[in-house]
Amino acid sequence: MAPYYRPVTSRCYVSTFRAICDSFIEVISAEVENSLRTVNIHQFLFFPAFQQNMPLMYELLKCWDSTEEGFKIKDHLLKFTTDEVAILTDLTIDQILFNAGFRYGDFLNYLSLKCFLQVWFLEHINVNTPRNPDSRPRFLRWEGNTNIFYSSEKAAHLLATLKEKQILYVLDGVSAEEADLVHADLTSFQPPPSPLK
């Protein structure tokens, strides 16, 4: 008998968040934008037009192993760490974990974590080519890419039929400069905990 999985529900209104950012960027002054750039959150004003791919998220979350703090995909453990979220977003680890004032952690969790998790998955599964492979922050590489939307059947088939060579253990092509910019240590044997913990 198959185990019961609670259906995934979504409170992540990415299109609404993006519309707010689009409106905001039209009226802010250069001084305000520079202030946001100083604290390294200006990139969210250019949040891409992601579709909420709930079938893919549902299949991915079924692979989550809370004891390992990672996703077990085809018997491979892929860690979803704060270092990798930092690389995807261009935020430093301190900014992600900061819990006063602006509350970056809540910002990532409530507004965009599903999208970053989706992009993280696409970065680790070599089946969808990014539209803008050199863009930074890395989540902009998938902007407007409608080829990453999966139906329930296609998402289940994708995870069931992945081949060994299609699974990447670490983010591909991260330069030392890129890691240094966000203070990420991608060579550590003890990576920071998962933001999903």
Score class of each variant (00 low, 15 high):
residue 29 S to I: 05
residue 173 G to Y: 02
residue 124 H to F: 10
residue 146 T to I: 14
residue 77 L to R: 00
residue 102 F to H: 15
residue 80 F to P: 01
residue 93 I to E: 08
residue 142 W to D: 02
residue 49 A to F: 12
residue 179 A to R: 05
residue 136 R to D: 00
residue 167 I to K: 01
residue 123 E to W: 03
residue 3 P to H: 11
residue 114 K to Y: 01
residue 62 K to Y: 12
residue 133 P to R: 12
residue 195 P to M: 15
residue 25 I to A: 04
residue 158 L to F: 06
residue 26 E to M: 08
residue 137 P to W: 02
residue 158 L to Q: 07
residue 113 L to H: 03
residue 27 V to C: 03
residue 195 P to Q: 13
residue 26 E to Y: 01
residue 24 F to M: 09
residue 187 T to C: 09
residue 187 T to G: 09
residue 171 L to T: 04
residue 9 T to C: 14
residue 17 F to C: 12
residue 99 N to C: 15
residue 192 P to N: 15
residue 176 A to S: 05
residue 74 K to S: 04
residue 123 E to S: 04
residue 17 F to A: 08
residue 190 Q to W: 14
residue 73 I to H: 10
residue 24 F to L: 08
residue 166 Q to P: 05
residue 159 L to I: 07
residue 95 Q to D: 03
residue 92 T to W: 01
residue 29 S to L: 11
residue 97 L to D: 10
residue 164 E to V: 00
residue 144 G to N: 12
residue 101 G to D: 01
residue 56 L to V: 12
residue 112 S to P: 06
residue 108 L to G: 08
residue 33 E to H: 10
residue 74 K to L: 06
residue 178 E to P: 04
residue 8 V to M: 07
residue 28 I to M: 14
residue 173 G to H: 02
residue 27 V to R: 03
residue 101 G to H: 03
residue 151 S to M: 11
residue 77 L to Q: 04
residue 138 R to E: 02
residue 70 G to S: 03
residue 187 T to M: 08
residue 36 L to A: 05
residue 12 C to Q: 15
residue 170 V to Y: 02
residue 185 D to Y: 02
residue 116 F to H: 07
residue 123 E to Y: 00
residue 11 R to Y: 14
residue 149 F to L: 15
residue 22 D to G: 02
residue 129 T to N: 14
residue 13 Y to P: 01
residue 179 A to D: 01
residue 21 C to E: 05
residue 27 V to N: 07
residue 8 V to P: 01
residue 49 A to M: 15
residue 113 L to A: 11
residue 65 D to Q: 12
residue 9 T to H: 12
residue 8 V to C: 11
residue 120 W to E: 00
residue 186 L to I: 15
residue 81 T to K: 00
residue 98 F to Q: 14
residue 159 L to N: 03
residue 147 N to I: 13
residue 120 W to N: 00
residue 22 D to K: 13
residue 167 I to R: 05
